[in-house]
Design a protein around this nucleic acid. Structure first.
Lengths: 209, 209
DNA sequence: GTCTATATATGGATAGAC
DNA sequence: GTCTATCCATATATAGAC
């Protein structure tokens, strides 16, 4: 790879990062390519040059992180008990949701709009896989006799729904937990607290004592 | 009230209903006043006439349903056990979230944007009240010895988070539950299922046996 | 690859006739 | 209250010079 090619990729990534920030903060329609070009410190024409259009840029912002390969199977296989498998997945999802907060904002807004496009199909597919993984573990746990017979789908949505609320509705969550919104140091404490909470919740609901 | 006044109120309400639909479907920025006026079958100039601006119209769409008085206190007081109080609140919230699906879409999108405006303050305040009511019941239940000592705030967010996922991420939920998205008859079944699920979940987690 | 200048469309809002 | 016509700001996208 030549230095020039490297530079080009950097520029592209730089634009994508800035765009992700802005789209996450204000939504697709509210952000202009002018803003993006200004924030990314590039000429406005470069966005058309690199991506073709604002819409294509938006799609690439979403898709680039959606297609990263999954190492979740490894995480699961390391644990013997189904409960531990589940908790390992939950911890992984907590990490991911907090790390990809911005992208999640974009994704779930797109979901809420509920318009069928190529992109929403891709997102739905991806989120569905997450649910499938959780559901599978719970189902197998039930079959093995380790878990109670519970509503598998709703249990899975409780996990996603609760974590999602924490990463996409910051103002209200900060209000509830009496945290200063500008103080982002709470993230780690929050992740730990969520992790502990799910263990307590499901050790009562799921695990047969 | 004269007939003319009545007609005016109807027109206003009509515009507000149509606007709520469109804002919920596409978001504030993506909807033009031209679209709204067309869909509401009124002249475009009437929106300025009635509301002053697009933004004011948007605010009124949100605020009009946010200021309805609460009968939640009645619902709680009818129940003796804290568990039954909690389940009564949950059922009420399930009803409300499903009934106000469109508005919730708008509200939580506004939350996700996380920009401090007069309106978001109002929304945050309102949502916070919901959390407070749930939290209070759980706290009192713990104090009375009826409930286990749990993470009160996270338990409350699980309730809201799970219900919210069902009403704001329809495509993925339909996918999970293997429901046809266009078939809206599932709503009642879904509400019942959620209600039963929360009872099972919390009878294990909260209630001391 | 990078820039300026511009074509073109669409948006919100309102002046002024009725 | 209702409408048409129009103003003006801002948007995306691109042609063409360098």
């Amino acid at each position: 790879m030549t230095e020039q090619e490297n530079k080009t990729i950097d520029k592209r990534e730089q634009i994508l990062d800035v765009a992700e920030d802005l789209f996450s903060l204000h939504g697709f329609e509210a952000v202009s390519v002018r803003e993006i070009s200004k924030a990314a410190d590039i000429n406005i024409a470069m966005i058309s040059y690199y991506f073709g259009s604002k819409e294509k840029l938006y799609e690439e912002v979403v898709i680039r992180k959606l297609t990263t390969s999954d190492k979740i199977i490894d995480v699961i296989s390391k644990q013997e008990k189904y409960a531990d498998k589940l908790y390992a997945i939950i911890d992984l999802y907590i990490d991911r949701f907090f790390a990809n907060r911005k992208l999640n904002n974009i994704i779930f807004r797109e979901m809420a709009l509920g318009q069928r496009t190529e992109m929403t199909e891709l997102i739905t597919e991806r989120l569905f896989q997450n649910f499938q993984i959780i559901s599978e573990v719970i189902k197998k746990g039930i079959k093995s006799g380790e878990f109670n017979k519970v509503d598998v789908e709703l249990t899975a949505t409780t996990i996603i729904g609760t974590i999602k609320l924490y990463t996409t509705s910051t103002p209200i969550v900060c209000r509830i937990l009496k945290i200063n919104e500008s103080d982002m140091s709470y993230t780690n404490k929050m992740k730990k607290r969520l992790s502990v909470y799910f263990r307590e919740l499901f050790s009562n609901y799921l695990e047969i004592k």
